[in-house]
């Protein structure tokens, strides 16, 4: 059987594309599917008691699992194919092995499916979890998946819990707010606290265990459309890292890409704490991005990837387009310290952050 394998990365060939020594090119995964690449993620795959960090790539109609051959090479080990509805995004679920979820749809999510890594490498195993008008989805700790669906008058916010075999163990609903929930974020270190952002510039807070809607906090209209990439609680306040909508772009010399806001959940009062801006001379606005621990990465409209150390408060690395191709998405690996950067034509570059 012809095995599709990664190209060996040649870091010296890419040195000129980096202006920071914080990122080291490890490998390049080349998808041969020919369709547009849409997302990348990492997951754990356990077999015969051995747990390996694998990479998941998604093109429009194909999702592929790449298994490590050694520290620098990955082999495409398995693919799942979709015929009617294209893949919109990978939805990683923390705390699970051998399972990843995907959202399918054209402009909006129409289906959520669980993809199971087959033991015999042959059978295409996928389970339809939910279908309909799905607005938002996120994987949560403790093997949970949350989604919002339906119309505003009949909105459902549902939490599913996965069993060991990938089936659904339990489902329960959270009290819906009177606004459409557009994104979710778990509060770091608080497994029973869930945040949602709404289309009306509100942050809603749930108790995941009881399903109670604890609070709806209206934030400034200027945050409209922002996604919460990270949330944590400290000294009685909630801190949220949002991408900056940049509505006032051009009016200011500062070019904010991410921002930190603080919310007092007791009073609903909130305030902007910090802006994470582009270095002087850099152009572009936030297209998409990801935050892990205290590092934030964003693909900019200029095609460059920029990385911030949220503790230092400034941009620490810039990754311009490689081979004249703009970056289209970027993700932090949830299983190791790799940065996964993708281009539309299916190239995925794996960088190690040093």
């Amino acid at each position: 059987r012809l095995v599709e394998q990664t190209e060996m990365a040649d870091p010296s060939a890419c040195d000129d594309s980096l202006n920071s020594h914080d990122l080291q090119l490890v490998s390049k995964l080349k998808s041969a599917s020919g369709s547009c690449s849409v997302d990348v993620s990492a997951m754990w795959w356990e077999r015969a008691g051995v747990k390996e960090s694998c990479i998941i790539t998604a093109c429009e109609y194909v999702v592929a699992l790449w298994k490590p051959l050694d520290a620098k090479r990955w082999k495409k080990n398995y693919t799942w194919h979709f015929k009617e509805i294209p893949v919109l995004q990978i939805v990683p679920v923390p705390d699970v092995c051998n399972l990843v979820c995907v959202a399918l749809g054209n402009l909006e999510i129409r289906e959520l499916r669980a993809l199971l890594c087959p033991c015999d490498d042959k059978s295409d195993k996928q389970v339809l979890l939910k279908s309909g008008n799905i607005e938002a989805v996120a994987g949560l700790t403790k093997r949970r998946l949350v989604s919002s669906s339906g119309t505003l008058d009949d909105q459902q916010v549902e939490v599913m819990t996965f069993a060991e075999d990938g089936g659904i163990n339990e489902k329960h609903f959270l009290m819906p707010p009177e606004e459409a929930v557009t994104t979710f974020a778990e509060v770091q270190g608080m497994e029973e606290t869930l945040l949602g952002t709404t289309g009306m510039s509100s942050i809603v807070i749930w108790n995941l265990k009881t399903g109670q809607l604890l609070k709806k906090v209206h934030i400034d209209e200027s945050y409209h459309g922002s996604v919460c990439h990270k949330a944590y609680s400290d000294m009685g306040l909630l801190f949220l890292v949002l991408n900056h909508p940049c509505a006032k772009d051009g009016q200011s010399l500062e070019k904010p890409v991410f921002q930190l806001i603080a919310i007092n959940p007791k009073t609903s009062l909130n305030v902007g704490v910090m802006l994470y801006c582009l270095p002087h001379g850099q152009a572009g606005r936030f297209l998409e991005g990801d935050v892990k621990d205290h590092f934030a990465a964003a693909v900019l409209t200029s095609g460059t990837i920029a990385i911030w150390d949220l503790l230092l408060g400034h941009c620490t690395a810039l990754l311009p387009p490689v081979s004249d191709q703009n970056w289209s998405f970027v993700k932090w690996s949830s299983t190791d310290s790799h940065l996964l950067a993708g281009q539309k034509d299916g190239n995925i570059f794996v960088y190690r952050c040093t």
Binding site: M175, M190, E192, T193, I205, N207, T210, Q212, L213, L214, K215, S233, M235, G236, L237, A262, I263, N264, P265, K266, T267, L269, N270, V271, G272, V273
Partner: peptide, 23 residues
């Protein structure tokens, strides 16, 4: 910014809001 402008702070906000919110 000044986070002291955000009103009285409670370290147990999650438990307090859970006891106040409708079930």
């Amino acid at each position: 910014c000044n986070v002291t402008d955000l009103g009285p702070i409670s370290l147990n906000w999650f438990e307090e809001l859970s006891s106040e919110a409708p079930p």
